[in-house]
Design a protein around this nucleic acid. Structure first.
Lengths: 339, 339
DNA sequence: TTGTAGGCGTTATCAC
DNA sequence: GTGATAACGCCTACAA
């Protein structure tokens, strides 16, 4: 410990900078905030003083004066503690954090405990937050939708309800699912099943719809559908049900990579080969896609970009800059070894 | 939109509460902060007013007055953008966020861009943060160690250097690795290899040491060592090297689950069976452990608890509450199907 | 272009 | 026990 007894070294204030530079606080404030009307000479000496004192503006004081928190909050519904196990979540957060790094906004995360939602609510509405980001896909999200009248809010993915007014960023799940299924069909598969996600969640709904369109178009049957909850075990269970039907089956489109990985277990557990006996395509292109053997062919979901775009949209909203209400990011099919 | 043209509804201030309750601001402040010396009667009417006005204290004003930010920052080294792909990271964050939810501290994340470390530094030292949490295992962390004299700081895992003064939370990697290896030996394996993590990172070093102790004790060879970087592909590469040696080999202890998953690819790629031909044990018990087939036997790493304990330690440090400098969390071996 | 002065919402130090 | 009153560090009319 080389720390002296005087405690943490005092932090320089704007006033100290002003004194050192021989100008008024107002002038310092102006150069700090990059206002144009400042004599270049003075600006220089102020900058020198700032450097000399290692001055950093005090966020609290600034927020108080401007009546803006310079903070955006990421809400994580507690019910969805699963999200943390979901690679999707981490990547969205990465994208958000990365974008905000270059702005004056700070990211803060709250787990909205369902036991005391009031606490979260008053935190958000208490003027401590300039905007809100909601990441989970789950229906739980919508408990916050009503705040969007009072506070700028951006969602990851189309909200199940209220979509006409909400700001959100997503990929075209339906189109992407259609393309993925087409890949299966075009490579000659005749009996294409799907493991769909929850039908009360937009990605679950839309991806199923895309599959349906593709099989209809190809004149294939639409009966081979089982539903999971986006977890790996649910994928295994769904695949087993599919196989238990005894109907011919040579391909499956899973609603996400985790369920696809689960399907692998069921398929390989019965001694069937991927892709020889059954081809598999997933969705998301997350870590599961490359951790399984054979590597999974899947829809690439640009998740980091999605997070970044969410943050960008929110900041624009906060600052009154016109922004698209809906942003749809492009996807692509990543061909690996499972088809 | 049911929002009227008056903009966001005005937020109640302490002063408004005081007016409504017919007391001074000082009294309201005392009630809000739970100070004892307040007439119960008055306290009641104040509480009623607070409820009526849906009052929430303004964080900025409070921070300014108390000269405390009530903010804890999680630093994510940019070099380590991998951390986001690492299930470990998400769980630590979950633990931290969960703990902080019940405190007055707010979590905020910064990606410390290496291009402009000064920005991060002055943000941290500018009085905008009460304490710092550092999550990555990587050596990059230590670029922040020097701040620990000026700002409370808690690490995830033993720092490579400066460990004598730092506060950190970890598991006993060496003991856990020893136990895992013993499991292999006790079940009759005679040629136990290891895929070690980077030898410039404490978990890499300590887990290798645990393996070494166990094989020495059992009189087995210590030559079967390859090193990876904790990624899946490095696990595959290391396992291939091991197999290429041509030496007898019937078990492998991997430094983490991702490398174990990578090893699976190499093993199964050569037509060898797990666990019949080669038994595999991993470390961390993350999502990779259950996504592979057969399910991986591994050391359970209590990551969420680790995050929680980090946050708890930091808050204690900030508030001057005596705390253990080092916390070691218990691990356990989770037996699945790979041994 | 620059400085003066008042205020942002709370807490803390005093008297009462 | 309670209430004035002065900070806390910064921004922003407004005046000069």
């Amino acid at each position: 410990m080389t720390q002296d007894a005087s405690g943490p070294r005092p932090v320089a204030t704007l006033e100290m900078v002003a004194a050192l530079a021989g100008v008024s606080r107002a002038t310092v404030s102006r150069v700090v905030n990059g206002l144009p009307s400042v004599d270049p000479k003075l600006a220089q000496s102020v900058k020198k003083a700032i450097l000399a004192l290692d001055y950093t503006p005090n966020r609290a004081a600034r927020s108080l004066a401007k009546r803006r928190a310079n903070t955006v909050t990421l809400i994580v519904p507690e019910s969805t503690s699963k999200v943390f196990a979901d690679p999707f979540f981490a990547s969205v957060v990465e994208g958000i954090a990365r974008y905000l790094t270059d702005t004056d906004y700070t990211l803060n995360m709250v787990i909205s405990s369902e036991s005391k939602p009031e606490k979260t609510r008053s935190f958000l509405l208490g003027g401590n937050v300039d905007g809100v980001l909601v990441v989970s896909h789950h229906s739980g999200d919508h408990s916050w939708t009503h705040l969007s009248g009072s506070l700028p809010m951006v969602f990851a993915g189309r909200p199940l309800v209220g979509g006409k007014e909400s700001y959100y960023v997503e990929v075209d799940n339906e189109q992407a699912a259609y393309n993925a299924t087409r890949q299966l069909i075009d490579s000659g598969r005749k009996h294409v099943a799907t493991i769909a996600g929850p039908q009360d969640m937009p990605p679950g709904i839309d991806r199923l719809a895309g599959w349906r369109t593709a099989v209809q178009e190809a004149g294939l049957g639409e009966a081979l559908v089982e539903t999971g909850d986006f977890t790996q075990v649910s994928g295994t269970r769904a695949m087993q049900s599919l196989l238990d039907r005894g109907d011919p089956l040579d391909a499956v489109f899973a609603g996400n990579d985790q369920m696809a990985a689960g399907a692998y277990t069921a398929i390989q557990g019965r001694g069937l080969r991927i892709p020889e006996d059954i081809a598999v395509v997933g969705f998301d292109d997350d870590s599961f896609a490359t951790s399984v053997t054979p590597a999974l062919t899947t829809v690439h979901h640009p998740i980091i970009e999605l997070g970044g775009k969410m943050a960008e949209t929110l900041v624009n909203l906060i600052e009154g800059i016109p922004t698209d209400r809906v942003t749809v990011l492009p996807t692509s099919l990543v061909i690996r070894d499972s088809v």
